[in-house]
Design a protein around this nucleic acid. Structure first.
Length: 453
RNA sequence: GACCCGUUCGUCUAGCGGUCUAGGACUCCGCCCUUUCACGGCGGCAACACGGGUUCGAGUCCCGUACGGGUCGCCA
């Protein structure tokens, strides 16, 4: 049997980290077992579905590298891959239930008779769950009245307007598309007995169910689109690497059993991935760790890929990625960047003379006694430097310091602030080399002029 | 409220009855490296929710309680 998994997004918003992780696990499982990964767009809610949302979701999946074998743009033999285009199929399946007398009309809606028996879900992650839909569905919690009210346990599968309900179309499509493994969020575990009842009503074989635990906020609340780290497009915009996001998502709820935490590609995850390593408890999202992981990925990125990934961020700051100084700059920034967006900030002093001076840093420097002399001495020595290399520059700073009988450290901070605008930033001497002799000297003189005269 | 699932450092987790005085990672703190900021190296703080069983022995198995999450829609 060929493994077939699917991710079935509803195009009503952004690609959420939880959805992306579900897609990732489905992708991993399919690839791991030589199977197919299918995308099906669940756009039955015409009022809320939009093309823009669909693009965001599919682009997000592509960015992560979760390519699908069948689905929108990819085609396939089990389409259409949009529920809005599958009405006839649903009608045919409804007819089957009618023929078996398993449905009835209720005020224009169609209800499916749930069986009065124990239904057992054999979940690959959660174990065995047994429920009797007739019993547990016979009452309903009314949030308004805050009490149990009588309810009809039979589930509505078609609305009076003829449109079909999620539980029904989801099962029909999974049957029609030959889905063998349903990997989805644990929020669907309680719905699964309903789905099993439908499978049985159609006389279809059950897929393997695997409900993965949910991701919550750090305070334990449900993650919503407003929460930091919740939306995939934010990772794209903020300079995360897709491999790092995959790495983090994979480890949120799954462990290989070893201490290994860094996986630099989907292929590497694939080697270790196994549904057995998926936890059964919810996890809380830790954006700090996610950033750390991204930093590790940046450190490990080959130079050409690094340049390629950084290019859009450089351009947005007006830096030409083809500039001959860029590769050296990137290497300088690499060790201290958590995101690609950080990189441009670090290397900006090389590319612009319009520096933004960090006020606390400036205060720290100008408040020191004798700073005017330090700066002018420094400028003079650097102007006279005949060997503008890291060694030559270092020697000049050293000479400047000695001429005033001061330690070199006393010169490093002022030099850093005057030429780079802040006490923080990339390695000073290589940065000076890249900025260039004339610009360095004039920056120091201008700085002195501006703040110490 | 009913039903379902879960519970190891603040967080992600290892652990599948003795090797656990509970291991790794993030965060935080200290030290070292560094004539700067980082990076890096070393070290430290910090957990088996609680109560009963079962067992020679329980983080590991069972039951209960507490807590957390989910489902209970003519949303998906």
């Amino acid at each position: 049997m060929t493994v077939r998994t699917r991710f079935a997004p509803s195009p009503t918003g952004f690609l959420h980290i939880g959805g992306a992780r579900t897609a990732l696990y489905n992708w991993l499982y399919a690839r791991k077992h030589g199977g197919k990964f299918v995308i099906r767009v669940e756009d039955t809610d015409a009022a809320r579905s939009t093309d823009a949302s669909q693009s965001i979701i599919l682009d997000g999946l592509r960015w992560l590298g979760l390519e699908w074998d069948e689905g929108p743009d990819a085609g396939g033999d089990n389409g259409p891959y949009f529920q809005s285009q599958r009405h006839e199929i649903y009608q045919a399946y409804l007819q089957k239930l009618k023929d078996s007398d398993l449905v009835y009309d209720d005020d224009g809606a169609v209800r499916f008779r749930v069986p009065d028996k124990e239904i057992t879900v054999n979940d690959a992650i959660c174990g065995t769950v047994t429920v009797n839909l007739k019993k547990t569905g016979s009452t309903r919690w009314d949030p308004e009245a805050k009490k149990e009210v009588e309810a009809n346990p039979d589930i509505v599968i078609r609305r009076p307007d003829g449109s079909f309900i999620f539980h029904f179309v989801n099962v029909v499509d999974d049957i029609e598309m030959g889905i063998t493994h349903v990997i989805r969020g644990e929020d669907h575990l309680s719905n699964t007995p309903k789905h099993i009842a439908l499978y049985e009503a159609f006389g279809s074989d059950l897929p393997t169910f695997a409900h993965i635990p949910l991701n919550l906020n750090k305070d334990g609340s449900k993650m919503s689109k407003r929460d930091q780290g919740a939306l995939i497009h934010e990772y794209i915009e903020n300079g995360f690497l897709p491999a790092a996001v995959n790495n983090y998502m994979a480890l949120l709820g799954w462990s290989s059993g070893s201490d290994r935490e860094l996986y630099f590609s989907l292929d590497e995850i694939l080697e270790d991935f196994d549904l057995k390593g998926v936890n059964s408890s919810n996890s809380k999202f830790d954006f700090e760790k996610c950033k750390w992981m991204n930093a590790e990925h940046i450190k490990a990125l080959p130079a050409d890929k690094f340049l390629q990934r950084s290019a859009p961020f450089l351009e947005s700051e007006g830096i030409d990625p083809k500039d001959s100084r860029v590769p050296a700059c990137l290497e300088l920034a690499r060790e201290r960047a958590e995101t690609l967006a950080d990189i441009t900030k670090v290397i900006l002093p090389v590319f612009t003379d319009n520096l933004e001076y960090d006020q606390p840093s400036v205060e720290k420097v100008v408040s020191k006694d004798g700073m005017a002399e330090v700066l002018s001495t420094l400028a003079t020595h650097l102007a006279e430097c005949g060997d503008w290399t890291t060694d030559g520059i270092k020697a000049s700073i050293q000479a400047a310091a000695e001429s005033l009988d001061l330690k070199m450290g006393a010169f490093m901070f002022p030099c850093r602030v005057a030429t780079m605008g802040s006490t923080a930033g990339a390695d000073l001497v290589p940065m000076l080399e890249l900025i260039g002799q004339d610009r360095v000297v004039s920056r120091i003189r201008d700085f002195k002029e501006k703040y110490l005269s």
